[in-house]
Amino acid sequence: MRVFVGLLLVVLMSVSQTAAAQVKVNVYLHQSAEQPGDVTWQKSYELSQPERISQVYERILSDLNADDLAQINWSASRLSSDFLQARLERHRERMVEQLDQLARHWSRQDEQQVADSIKRLAAQVSRWPLQATYSFNLTPDQTRLILQQNPLLTRADGRVFNWHLYSFPHKALTFGLPEDLAGVDNDFLWRVLPNGTVAKQPVAYYNKRLPAACYQHDERSPIQSVNADQAQRCAIKGNLIHSVRLLSEYWLTDETEQLDLELMLLAKFILPNGGQS
């Protein structure tokens, strides 16, 4: 396996000019649910040559003790770059701005309670602990086996890569607005599934056994907007990262028709366990 990857590196040198520049990889190990966000181990690697994910993993193997290693929930790990994180923050700013506009709109229509709910959501969104990631469900075994799941960390995607690792167990939380607030959608709950899929799940008395509408995560364009038409039907079997309760479609204007979906583009990047980064 290593021989194979090495050969590729040779090929790549001639292909990619940007690949030659140095990148830095920070690895953080977060402790389990009892103390969300606590970093119990961290290490920085300055890579003078571009390396693949699996090579960084091999470095972690030699630096981390075996018992901590056995507790890592790899599929919950988050790998992003400074570039990607910056894009996510820009998207967050846009969403907060849209929410503020929507709140002003309903305020003008004398729907003060709804406007208050929307403001409350906007405040939450600006505080969400977000950690962008290219791929969900990043398991080292798959990266070592499949080249297409084992990209090079290069200047093309960022100067600094952050790899957040989490220990078991994981506790799924619910974010967003409380159930009893004006303007809240109590008929559907948004779910984030372990593979990054965002699902709109029917939960009301009349629809709760109907299939959910799912939007898949695309690791090659992690923050790209999706269209409601792209929904696929899916069944949710109880495994999820977290849930989010958002606004009822009724209160979305023509300009903000897809607001919930766009908000989920942020919410799926809320840190596992809702921990602070």
Partner: peptide, 16 residues
């Protein structure tokens, strides 16, 4: 070809 090879070698995260 250079773009294709970036995806082919998985030389970054985003090229397809």
């Amino acid at each position: 070809a250079p773009t294709f090879k970036r995806a082919f070698y998985r030389a970054d995260f985003t090229t397809r």
